[in-house]
Write a protein that binds this DNA or RNA. Structure first.
Lengths: 154, 154
DNA sequence: AGTAAGACAACTAAATTACTAGGGATTCAC
DNA sequence: GTGAATCCCTAGTAATTTAGTTGTCTTACT
């Protein structure tokens, strides 16, 4: 049930872009540096987001990435769907085929549906703008540092 | 964000055991046959559930598996935690370390926390008994068949 | 004793994840 | 119009996880 690092990195990059929204494109080195990850890897993720029309690019010197729309209009759902492929916890309750041929004989289906509904609620209702605002406000209250949250624990 | 087949198979097996609760042990061949999967694979899952004290076993002829407690007292959370290892969507919001050292610098953390809270709500509040009851009632209303929900879609 | 069951360990094939490498195409600044 | 900055794209790869299979051993009912 883990969220992939793709999703975490990509989502944070989108939040970075939301913070910079309206101020021109942000380059890959800056975005990757913000999270301390390789440019090559983040680039792949951003390309998916471009395909999905969430970000736009400006090539050449002084180029970079920027959001195609107001972050207030951009749901986390849309971003994660592009990064993760799908936000369905099991294929048979995804948006594409909410009906499974053995639905009537699957004892766990009611649980899966309930869980998926709650997850979708959060993902659809949370906008990138909210996350960006939370983050900038929190940073304003102190403790500035890099946008990293990927340590290993035991 | 997918639930593994481990979890799906294991959870359904537990629901099967809940339906049979109080009627003596159910053998591996019966449980595996119910889902149309191999005995060897399901056995591994059941062993995890035994380690976690969710199921108990009776060896020898006429033996099998049974729940250690009333299914009404058994949450889906507990079952999935044993099967999945953890039900945390990202390590840094798991039950073990709800605090990440870069928590204050992670722009996506508020989302992760909200999502995890909603997921835990569902998993903690849903009991195996509820799922078992739903299933038996639905079967009583018709359309009996095997407990399979694992087709591939496109 | 024979057989029906679970216990356990080890191995494996396939898929996924998380990258890395490297060359190509644009565009800006000078 | 050259050079540097930048995105574009493909391919490869190592590590991990997933989803099993196989085989031997132990236990206990009949």
């Amino acid at each position: 049930m883990k969220l992939s690092t793709r999703s975490r990195y990509g989502l944070k990059a989108v939040i970075d872009l939301a913070i910079a929204y309206g101020t021109g494109p942000v380059s890959l080195p800056v975005l990757a540096g913000s999270q301390g990850i390789s440019e090559g890897y983040l680039e792949q993720l951003l390309r998916e987001l471009k395909k999905g029309n969430v970000v736009d690019t400006v090539r050449g010197a002084q180029g970079g990435y920027e959001l195609t729309c107001d972050p207030a209009e951009l749901s986390v759902q849309r971003v994660l769907n592009l990064l993760e492929g799908s936000t369905a916890i099991v294929d048979c309750v995804g948006t594409l085929h909410h009906n499974c041929t053995s639905a009537c004989s699957c004892s766990a289906r009611p649980l899966f549906l309930k869980l998926q509904t709650r997850i979708n609620d959060v993902l659809e209702c949370t906008t990138i703008r909210e996350l960006a605002d939370d983050y900038t406000q929190q940073k304003a209250r102190g403790i500035p540092s890099r946008n990293i949250c990927d340590q290993k624990f035991e």
